[in-house]
Design a protein around this nucleic acid. Structure first.
Length: 468
RNA sequence: GCUCCCAUCGUCUAGCGGUUAGGACGCGGCCCUCUCAAGGCUGAAACACGAGUUCGAUUCUCGUUGGGAGCGCCA
């Protein structure tokens, strides 16, 4: 990369499953760096494995990226479509004696590995065809093309995250470039595509660190420019073990369905492995301004759902009332529910009090439920505890005092306070039964505001249902 | 087994030779308060271990231990 060219980043998932949290973070870091530097962020689908790649997975990745707000530049590149180019590079390597044909069968190689394992030897291709010329008996037999890797010296990966990582070349074996069906392997394809696409920075999961040394050898043989590498430590589950389907390896869309905001996910994932002093709340705009490769941590991190919740609560409170009303409405529509005009107006008015109390959009919808329909409420467990016989008696006794006043929050509150004082009760002793009857829950936005919002008729209808 | 990576409160992390080891989430207490939140104050909570280097190590080096990744005609 020359001094005045902008960085070119890429996210290169294989479409064999959903876009999970680890992939999303890799994509985020690439995206942030591209946006920070004014560079380019490319998306390449690594679908050379024809067996396992599916169109559904491609769509899931695209959807996940879109939801996360990680917009890529230009068209999506499908790796398999470039197979001819990969074969061309393999042919060149072959012609130059930098690669060779290996006729070993899969069974033969399996037997070789088992033997190595049994003897406690390192498991790697032993180079049996490296210097062997195929004889007549190989005519028409299938073969793979392997790179003739250097066997002495060392290969150093200059990694922006981990520093210099050295590998003895004697530890690296001759990897397969072209399969026996003539299709390229990932090892060949990534290198060729990155070179052709002008990728300057390869930021990917640390599970690829070992591959980097091998890929470096292909780059070297082809005389291409070595990209800047950055291998991100992996994300573990809350228990520190590998991320599995059981806990965090959920598709990013699962987080959407649990009611997390994209902004939350970006902030949370950013802080998982990257820091900027003591800063915790880092909106995306700020993240783009601050992001760098130097501040990426070296150790693996665990998912912490409590912290995710806390952050999401923060961003929900930051979101405008109007936007949240739209979110709730959309949420209900997905459940085939439509709000009445009245319900929608109530939702708009109550939103400031509602959003203060929700950590997720799911909680926001639940907290607003009492506004959506008219009539007496069904009490949840906590609310029911507030309306035992004595509670109902208090409620019945207080009702006339409320009925006698103007139906405004201040007037209602004054009336309730006066009633409580007259009966030697704390305000809470009066307010809680009222809240339970009005909302069906033990907690809600400020009671008197909710009474005013629902109006005299509707409120009295609900309260009256629990006076006996 | 071999190769590689990692190691500060329970968790995410700041720290880049000398700090009362800081912040955040979570947890406890107090305040506020009609509930729940939010907010404010506050408390408990960490340098894995052992050798070096150094006047001095959380910080540098090596080892140990413990985690993790890779070792496919998967990516």
């Amino acid at each position: 990369m020359s001094e005045n060219t902008k960085p070119v980043l890429r996210f290169a998932p294989s479409p064999t499953g959903m876009l999970h949290i680890g992939g999303a973070r890799t994509a985020l870091f690439n995206w942030l760096y591209a946006r920070h530097t004014g560079g380019t962020f490319l998306l390449r689908i690594e679908d050379t494995d024809r067996e396992r790649s599916t169109p559904q997975a491609v769509q899931a990745i695209l959807n996940g990226m879109s939801w996360m707000g990680l917009t890529w530049d230009g068209d999506v590149v499908y790796q398999f479509a470039r197979a001819d180019r990969h074969r061309e590079v393999a042919a060149k390597l072959l012609a130059e004696g930098k690669a060779y044909r290996c006729y070993a069968t899969a069974e033969e190689l399996t037997a070789m590995r088992e033997e190595q394992k049994a003897k406690g030897l390192p498991m790697r291709y032993d180079g049996r065809w490296r210097d062997r010329k195929p004889g007549p008996e190989q005519d028409g037999k299938p073969f793979v093309v392997r790179l003739k890797a250097r066997q002495s010296g060392e290969t150093i990966v200059h990694d922006k995250v981990l520093g210099d990582v050295r590998f003895e070349n004697s530890q690296l074996d001759d990897m397969v470039l072209l399969r026996s069906d003539g299709n390229p392997t990932y090892m060949l394809a990534v290198v060729v595509d990155d070179a052709d696409m002008g990728v300057t920075h390869v930021i990917r999961g640390a599970d690829h660190l070992n591959n980097a040394a091998r890929q470096l050898q292909i780059i070297e043989q082809m005389g291409w420019t070595v990209p800047v590498y950055g291998h991100l430590p992996l994300i573990n589950g809350p228990d520190g073990a590998k991320l599995s389907k059981r806990h965090g390896a959920l598709a990013v869309e699962a987080y959407r369905d649990m009611g997390y905001l994209p902004e939350t996910m970006r902030n949370y994932l950013l802080r998982l492995g990257w820091s900027h002093g003591d800063d915790e709340i880092i909106p995306t705009k700020q993240a783009i301004a601050w992001f760098n490769l130097e501040s990426i941590g070296k150790s693996a991190a665990r998912m912490d759902y409590k912290k995710l919740d806390n952050l999401n609560g923060h961003y929900i409170r930051e979101t405008s009332d109007a936007a949240l009303v739209a979110e709730v409405t959309a949420w209900l529509e997905r459940e085939k529910r439509v709000l009445s005009m009245t319900a929608r107006q109530r939702l708009e008015q109550a939103m400031p009090g509602l959003k203060e109390r929700a950590k997720t959009l799911v909680e926001l919808v639940q907290g607003a439920e009492f506004l959506f329909t008219d009539g007496p409420r069904t009490l949840d467990e906590a609310a029911a505890r507030l309306l035992p016989p004595e509670g109902r008696k208090t409620l019945a006794a207080a009702l006339p005092a409320l009925e006698a006043t103007d139906w405004t929050a201040p007037a209602l509150e004054a009336a309730a306070r006066a009633f409580a004082q007259a009966h030697g009760l704390k305000l809470g002793a009066v307010a809680q039964p009222l809240r339970a009857a009005l909302t069906g829950r033990a907690s809600s936005p400020p009671l008197f505001e909710m009474l005013a919002l629902l109006g005299r008729e509707e409120s009295l209808n609900r309260l009256g249902a629990y006076t006996a």
